[in-house]
Simulated assay, not measured.
Amino acid sequence: MPRPTRRTVVPIDTTLLIAEAFDQAQVTELRHSVTSCAHAVGLRGQRLDDFVLAVNELLTNAVRHGGGRGWLRLWRQPGRLVCEVADHGRGISSRRLDDRSRPAPDTAGGWGLWLARELSDAMDVETGPAGTTVRIGMPLAPALDAGERAPD
Protein backbone atom coordinates (compact mmCIF):
# COMPACT_ATOMS: atom_id res chain seq x y z
CA MET A 1 0.00 0.00 0.00
CA PRO A 2 1.52 3.37 -0.97
CA ARG A 3 2.26 5.88 1.74
CA PRO A 4 0.16 9.04 1.70
CA THR A 5 1.88 12.08 0.23
CA ARG A 6 2.77 14.71 2.80
CA ARG A 7 1.45 18.12 2.03
CA THR A 8 2.65 21.40 3.34
CA VAL A 9 -0.24 23.56 4.44
CA VAL A 10 0.43 27.26 4.35
CA PRO A 11 -2.00 29.24 6.46
CA ILE A 12 -3.87 32.03 4.74
CA ASP A 13 -2.62 35.41 5.86
CA THR A 14 -5.70 36.91 7.48
CA THR A 15 -4.07 40.32 7.65
CA LEU A 16 -4.21 40.78 3.87
CA LEU A 17 -7.22 42.97 3.14
CA ILE A 18 -6.93 43.69 -0.60
CA ALA A 19 -4.75 42.32 -3.39
CA GLU A 20 -5.95 43.55 -6.75
CA ALA A 21 -4.71 44.54 -10.18
CA PHE A 22 -6.14 47.80 -11.52
CA ASP A 23 -6.23 50.23 -14.39
CA GLN A 24 -7.92 53.62 -14.76
CA ALA A 25 -11.39 52.05 -14.80
CA GLN A 26 -10.91 50.51 -11.33
CA VAL A 27 -9.30 53.45 -9.49
CA THR A 28 -12.52 54.85 -7.99
CA GLU A 29 -13.86 51.45 -6.94
CA LEU A 30 -10.50 50.47 -5.46
CA ARG A 31 -10.30 53.75 -3.53
CA HIS A 32 -13.73 53.00 -2.02
CA SER A 33 -12.56 49.50 -1.05
CA VAL A 34 -9.46 50.95 0.62
CA THR A 35 -11.66 53.42 2.51
CA SER A 36 -13.95 50.64 3.77
CA CYS A 37 -11.07 48.40 4.84
CA ALA A 38 -9.15 51.22 6.52
CA HIS A 39 -12.26 52.26 8.43
CA ALA A 40 -12.96 48.66 9.42
CA VAL A 41 -9.50 48.28 10.99
CA GLY A 42 -9.79 51.52 12.96
CA LEU A 43 -8.73 54.54 10.91
CA ARG A 44 -11.11 57.43 11.48
CA GLY A 45 -11.48 61.12 10.71
CA GLN A 46 -8.53 63.02 9.29
CA ARG A 47 -6.19 60.03 9.51
CA LEU A 48 -8.57 58.00 7.35
CA ASP A 49 -8.95 60.85 4.85
CA ASP A 50 -5.17 61.35 4.68
CA PHE A 51 -4.46 57.67 4.13
CA VAL A 52 -7.08 57.31 1.38
CA LEU A 53 -5.86 60.47 -0.39
CA ALA A 54 -2.28 59.17 -0.26
CA VAL A 55 -3.37 55.82 -1.73
CA ASN A 56 -5.38 57.61 -4.42
CA GLU A 57 -2.30 59.59 -5.44
CA LEU A 58 -0.31 56.36 -5.75
CA LEU A 59 -3.04 54.72 -7.83
CA THR A 60 -3.22 57.73 -10.11
CA ASN A 61 0.57 57.84 -10.49
CA ALA A 62 0.65 54.16 -11.45
CA VAL A 63 -1.94 54.76 -14.17
CA ARG A 64 -0.41 58.01 -15.47
CA HIS A 65 3.28 57.24 -15.23
CA GLY A 66 3.54 53.50 -14.66
CA GLY A 67 2.25 51.92 -17.81
CA GLY A 68 -1.49 52.45 -17.36
CA ARG A 69 -2.03 49.76 -14.76
CA GLY A 70 -0.79 48.54 -11.43
CA TRP A 71 -1.21 46.23 -8.47
CA LEU A 72 -2.43 47.21 -5.00
CA ARG A 73 -1.99 45.28 -1.78
CA LEU A 74 -3.42 46.48 1.53
CA TRP A 75 -2.68 44.69 4.78
CA ARG A 76 -2.76 45.12 8.50
CA GLN A 77 0.29 44.65 10.69
CA PRO A 78 0.16 44.90 14.46
CA GLY A 79 -0.65 48.56 15.14
CA ARG A 80 -0.29 49.63 11.50
CA LEU A 81 -2.05 49.67 8.14
CA VAL A 82 0.16 49.28 5.07
CA CYS A 83 -0.60 49.86 1.39
CA GLU A 84 1.66 48.95 -1.50
CA VAL A 85 1.13 50.09 -5.09
CA ALA A 86 3.31 48.65 -7.85
CA ASP A 87 3.52 49.41 -11.56
CA HIS A 88 5.55 48.43 -14.61
CA GLY A 89 6.64 51.89 -15.72
CA ARG A 90 10.18 53.09 -16.47
CA GLY A 91 10.91 54.04 -12.87
CA ILE A 92 11.39 57.35 -11.10
CA SER A 93 14.59 59.34 -11.42
CA SER A 94 16.74 59.65 -8.30
CA ARG A 95 16.56 63.45 -8.68
CA ARG A 96 12.75 63.29 -8.47
CA LEU A 97 12.84 60.87 -5.52
CA ASP A 98 15.36 62.96 -3.61
CA ASP A 99 13.38 66.19 -4.09
CA ARG A 100 11.31 66.51 -0.93
CA SER A 101 10.26 70.13 -1.52
CA ARG A 102 6.63 71.07 -1.92
CA PRO A 103 5.69 71.64 -5.58
CA ALA A 104 4.89 75.23 -6.54
CA PRO A 105 1.18 76.03 -6.10
CA ASP A 106 0.72 76.64 -9.83
CA THR A 107 2.34 73.32 -10.81
CA ALA A 108 -0.06 71.08 -12.72
CA GLY A 109 1.76 67.83 -11.88
CA GLY A 110 4.32 66.46 -9.48
CA TRP A 111 2.11 66.41 -6.41
CA GLY A 112 1.46 62.66 -6.10
CA LEU A 113 4.59 61.38 -4.37
CA TRP A 114 4.92 64.55 -2.31
CA LEU A 115 1.33 64.23 -1.05
CA ALA A 116 1.68 60.50 -0.35
CA ARG A 117 4.82 61.19 1.68
CA GLU A 118 3.23 64.08 3.59
CA LEU A 119 -0.04 62.30 4.34
CA SER A 120 1.32 58.95 5.50
CA ASP A 121 3.42 58.02 8.50
CA ALA A 122 6.11 56.34 6.39
CA MET A 123 6.84 55.86 2.70
CA ASP A 124 9.32 53.55 0.98
CA VAL A 125 10.00 53.54 -2.76
CA GLU A 126 11.73 50.88 -4.83
CA THR A 127 12.15 51.92 -8.44
CA GLY A 128 13.98 50.92 -11.58
CA PRO A 129 13.53 50.35 -15.30
CA ALA A 130 11.12 47.46 -14.64
CA GLY A 131 8.73 49.52 -12.51
CA THR A 132 8.11 51.15 -9.18
CA THR A 133 6.72 49.92 -5.87
CA VAL A 134 5.63 52.46 -3.28
CA ARG A 135 4.70 51.37 0.24
CA ILE A 136 3.01 53.68 2.74
CA GLY A 137 1.96 53.06 6.31
CA MET A 138 -0.32 54.61 8.88
CA PRO A 139 -0.42 53.76 12.57
CA LEU A 140 -3.66 52.35 13.93
CA ALA A 141 -5.13 53.36 17.24
CA PRO A 142 -4.68 50.75 19.97
CA ALA A 143 -7.58 48.32 20.34
CA LEU A 144 -10.36 49.62 22.53
CA ASP A 145 -11.53 47.94 25.68
CA ALA A 146 -15.11 46.66 25.69
CA GLY A 147 -17.54 49.54 26.01
CA GLU A 148 -15.14 52.25 24.77
CA ARG A 149 -15.97 54.19 21.68
CA ALA A 150 -13.45 55.13 18.98
CA PRO A 151 -12.97 58.86 18.45
CA ASP A 152 -14.42 60.17 15.20
Rank of each mutant, 00 (worst) to 15 (best):
L59D: 01
R102H: 07
W111F: 11
L81I: 12
E148W: 02
D121Y: 11
V52Q: 06
G128Q: 03
W111A: 05
R3V: 07
F51E: 02
T127L: 09
T5S: 11
H32N: 13
P2F: 10
L140K: 10
L97K: 06
P139V: 14
D23I: 01
L140W: 10
G67S: 03
R64T: 06
G110A: 05
R80E: 15
Q46C: 03
A143P: 15
R149T: 14
R90Q: 04
D152V: 15
L140C: 06
P151Y: 08
F51G: 03
T5P: 07
V9R: 14
G42V: 06
R149I: 12
W71I: 02
E20M: 09
I136A: 04
V82C: 13
E148C: 05
L144P: 07
S93E: 05
A130W: 00
V55D: 03
T5R: 14
L119T: 08
G110R: 04
S120H: 04
R96W: 04
P11C: 03
R76H: 07
G70C: 09
I92E: 01
C83I: 02
G70R: 09
I92T: 09
G45S: 13
Q24F: 00
L81A: 08
S36W: 06
A108P: 01
I92N: 02
R76F: 01
P129E: 15
F51I: 01
E20I: 09
A141K: 13
T127R: 05
V41I: 10
R31D: 07
A40H: 13
S93R: 12
G45E: 07
L74K: 11
S93Y: 03
T28Q: 14
G91I: 00
G128E: 06
R76K: 14
R135L: 12
V34G: 02
V34C: 01
F22T: 00
V10F: 06
Q26R: 07
D124N: 13
P11T: 09
N56D: 11
M138W: 08
V9H: 13
